[in-house]
Nucleic acid binder design. Structure first.
Lengths: 210, 210
DNA sequence: AGCAAAATCAAGCAGCTGTTTGAGTTCTGT
DNA sequence: ACAGAACTCAAACAGCTGCTTGATTTTGCT
């Protein structure tokens, strides 16, 4: 048979590897890096404890992988959504695009929400070595600064950057705190109808103060 | 001698009790409830491990006490500051008063900031029984809703309540996330000059959208 | 069929976790 | 002076932590 044929050993290995990643992400979202336990992950994934050492080297490495996955998925989604904005669109559209991935995950719940929670927790306790994604992270912010700068003239870039980080922080908070769960119980249209004005207002700032 | 005379035993007991509370709060602020360790607290406080059982009953009870202390100090400060607002003041003044305690703690650092971090973490992982402070917490929010409602007509109270919780979440985020540390390096006037417009903008929402 | 790589497994390791215990010290009231 | 309360302390406890080990099973290749 061709060497390209399905290698059942490697396939099974991939499956437990993915299961460990999924279980780790779920628990990271729920309790953060400090509250994650090796046995809890392996039990949930139906794997042996030594599978973690075998596939990832250590629990920390597994968590780092899970975090990196989550962060990359989120950043890609946000970068795409902001980049696809029409140049004629307003601040509200930018806010809606910026918050899009988070709002959808909030409404969807499940694993999507777990990914967002993991991302949000990383914003509080950043892992030591997250070098590979720092560039992508800063790119995302620079994209939004540019888009925002085109829509809100007369505010220097450093301040716009601050406002964007505030908006990102607020989104992270909504995903983590109980208020997010309450909000998720509302119909998705109301999430957007309530949240977008707040974000847009934060982007614009006070009208009378410089 | 009078029975009011200094009882050195009880005084010493109070001192280790307070030391344990302070150490617990410091560590709660830094690593959250999951990352706090009995021995780390007692080492930092220069006390014996069994002092925790003796004075509080358990590690969890000690943490609950520390959290309750922090939350009460914060809520009292915020309620006072918002209540002392002039009725002629605007949305920016309300935002400044609302954010006052947090902003000052951010600029001051040290133990004040640790208290705020503990408060912020509680917003994400609320302790099971925080019954005593639920009332004070809701009172604070109702006060701000009333003040905000007087300054922003035409928006229903439920939505104003949401905006206030967004503002509170943003403040909590600033205290916890690295951006807050960066912000604290700036002069205190700039913290206010940047943050108040964002909060006021979030309070007002979008001008063109209902 | 036979060999070797890939993957899984139960068992055990040292170290840390919160809590308990019983003896010890320090101070107060009588 | 003495009884007893208030407090501190070292030592031990069972249970959990992440990780390693050596054997075993499963699979692919010749």
């Amino acid at each position: 048979m061709a060497t390209e044929r399905t290698d059942q050993r490697r396939e099974a290995g991939q499956r437990t590897r993915d299961g460990l990643l999924a279980a780790a992400q779920e628990l990271l979202a729920r309790r953060g890096q400090e509250g994650v336990t090796l046995r809890e992950i392996t039990d949930r994934a139906g794997a042996n404890v030594s599978a973690v050492s075998y596939h990832f080297g250590s629990l920390k490495a597994l968590c780092d992988s899970a975090i990196e996955n989550a962060l990359e998925r989120y950043l890609d989604a946000q970068i795409d959504e902001v980049a696809s904005l029409d140049t004629a669109s307003g601040v509200e559209d930018l806010a809606a695009a910026f918050a899009g991935p988070m709002m959808r995950a909030l409404a969807a719940g499940g694993q999507d929400l777990a990914v967002m929670r993991t991302v949000a927790r990383v914003g509080i306790d950043p892992p030591e070595g997250w070098g590979r994604l720092t560039a992508k992270f800063q790119q995302s912010r620079r994209d939004v600064v540019r888009q925002l700068s085109a829509r809100i003239p007369g505010v220097e870039e450093r301040e716009l950057d601050f406002r964007i980080r505030c908006a990102a922080g607020l989104l992270n908070w909504l995903v983590l705190a109980p208020i997010g769960t309450e909000l998720a119980a509302e119909p998705p249209e109301q999430i957007e109808r309530w949240l977008v004005p707040v974000l847009a207002g934060a982007f614009r700032g006070s009208p009378n103060v410089g």
